[in-house]
Design a binder for these strands. Sequence first.
RNA 1: GCGGACGUGGCGAAAUGGUAGACGCAAGGGACUUAAAAUCCCUCGGGGAGAAAUCCCUGUGCCGGUUCGAGUCCGGCCGUCCGCACCA
Length: 788
Amino acid sequence: MVLVSAAAKAPKLNAESKHPDRYNAGDAEARWQKIWDERGIFATKNADPRPKYYVLEMFPYPSGRIHMGHVRNYTMGDVVARYKRAMGLNVLHPMGWDAFGMPAENAAMERKVHPKAWTYDNIAAMKKQLKSMGLSLDWSREIATCDPAYYKHQQKMFLDFLGAKLVEREKRKVNWDPVDQTVLANEQVIDGRGWRSGALVEQREMSQWVFKITKYSQDLLDALDRLDRWPEKVRLMQKNWIGRSEGLLVRFALDPKTTPQGESELEIFTTRPDTLFGAKFMALAPDHPLSLAAAAKNPALARFIEECRHRGAAQAEIDTAEKLGFDTGIKAIHPFDPNWTLPVYVANFILMEYGTGAIFGCPAHDQRDLDFVNKYDLGNVPVVCPPGQDPSTFVITDTAYDGDGRMINSRFLDGMTIAEAKEEVARRLEKDSRGNRPVAQRQVNFRLRDWGISRQRYWGCPIPIIHCEKCGVVPVPEKDLPVTLPEDVSFDRPGNPLDHHPTWKHVACPQCGGKARRETDTMDTFVDSSWYFERFTDPWIATAPTDVPMVDAWMPVDQYIGGIEHAILHLLYSRFFTRAMKATGHVGVDEPFAGLFTQGMVVHETYRTESGEWAAPAEVKIEADGDARRATLIATGEPVAIGAIEKMSKSKRNTVDPDEIIAAYGADVARWFMLSDSPPDRDVEWTERGVQGAWRFSQRLWRLVGEAAEIAAFAPAARPAAFSEPATRLRKATHRALARVSDDIEKLHFNVCVASIYEFANALNDVIGGIEEHGDAKLTPDLGWAMR
RNA sequence: GCGGACGUGGCGAAAUGGUAGACGCAAGGGACUUAAAAUCCCUCGGGGAGAAAUCCCUGUGCCGGUUCGAGUCCGGCCGUCCGCACCA
């Protein structure tokens, strides 16, 4: 297939065009970029009396090439940065590299290049591309997370967090790939198999380092209300992710005749204590201690639990999984009636990680519980009667009722509202006690789990810990930081190269001097990106990136811009990390990002040949065919089907290379088009027609400004007493454009800014056109003055 | 299942509760040109009246409501998209 570059399809311009009436973006942009570079005019000083403004776009992973999403993201940030600078603020607009991660290791395995060499080559290539975009970035503060000068601080913070009990070691169930010998994230498990190796994934208990993000659950939730310059959508997503719910912990006594040795009660968590008189069964998570105790004497139950464990994490399986239970034979005693017993099941849909890993089931008012009792024929009793319904005829069959109403069939609760009943149950059970402890206590539960950061990978920040046979877990002394990655590693066998390294992990224990072993796990790369915005503020970063503490003067980031895909993990981790940094004296603020903006994706049509292969936009020629459009392959003339407009992706080959666009049209045109048309938080469709329209406008504007300058040359030095009619019109248009553009940049409505500038150009064109029509008669000094 | 957002011309879209469709793309017509490209000018939601300037009716997914006035606010449907999801 012949690749036809965008340059070949574009109108003849730039280097090819020496036409005096044309703006040559290639020459002009290169000239200005060189001057900006030489004079270092975007380098920001910390010592500056002007008010600060910190604008930041999410830093890129150095994949090697920038894509249109980067162009859109960094153009938005750049417009804000230039605007705020023009408004007289001291603007910090830095750039760095999220440089650790798996792709570097994959490249090492596939192409025998060292991850470090691969990463730094990519950084060099992408930096060149970003520079060609004409971004007003302070490159003197550039950082790469794989630089020991960067991760040294991260290791220090890890140790400080450890001291503050914000890092702990915990046994956790993880997805283990037995072929690649590594832990996999849930997203890397596809249909129960490792995404690379295809091996059946096992659930393994492993010791992991975890960040105690749950210590801040309530605070992370409460503070969301104060982030008034964040999109509502992101705040909601985080709120749901943290998942707070209020309820009651209730201890059910177990009938000793039916219960294994050593177990006398079962604690459950419920948000519906009001429905306690509708209880029909109890259910345990398969890995609940009571399940395991019961299974010890019951091989069939043990088999059932084993089957539950093999159920994968894959979404499709969870969606379709049948609710299955196994009756343990154990009976639980109702907290309000010693003669009322409930069967205790082990059920595949109960999660050990949430609440206590055990529930009571009230089928009439919970759909899942209802499905369960209908399967096992346990029946149901409605206890909440909807308003206007006769309680004596209210029956539940297939659909649980979870609405409002009054209590029925519930003894002393009858007639109460749900809220009253919840309160009454809590009050009574709190007063009841068994074995010196109340039968129930109120509890707030969160869905949020602690953040496991251990990864069995080479290309990440080493965890600064030494394991000693005698002393146990020993932190690396501060004077020995950074713990740097060894460079002589090999990727020719599965597993973590740090683990296979002949010498690196063997060290003397810092405490006893005896034989010890380094932690060979590295940190999740989300750790690297959870504080990089703080690192940019270091006053000495350009000259001496060493031990100087960072300053708060720049924080928080005033405007952060990036993709919605980071709405939860990156942004939540960063919010946690900043709190942990504050707790350990690294920074003085809680919230890292005062303003957040999430931009939409860049999308493009897809093209498919008759044989079903994807074709790239650069390979396809589009022609008008009446109202329709017809596409053919440039190389062969073969017809191509125009398909859905989708996110630019390598797999569908519907990408457009920023380099080619910039070479063909210039960076300003690419940037202009990226901000035109669609609101910035929505998806924008990249089209050939659209970018050509932007290019035409750049030419038109250049011509208009040139003509206006000629007219302006007629202006006398002193301002005339009154402006003539066209001059007044022009003056109005100018001020209107200034006001609207300023206003809309503040609101980040870049598409409306673009429209305002089109309007201004139209007004300028009208005035100039009017002059040309009437010859020089109207070319008054007034107008010349206005043009100036 | 839970939560949320959105629905305006052929298309992308504008519009502090106050002249709906700014601006751009596409389309059509015209000027320039031997011709084309480029450029410039005009038209462009639907329907109707007029020779024309212009005017009238209608129109923001559907049904109601609040208001002097609703694309915008409220309630209910329909549709599309997104996030979370066995969370007790």
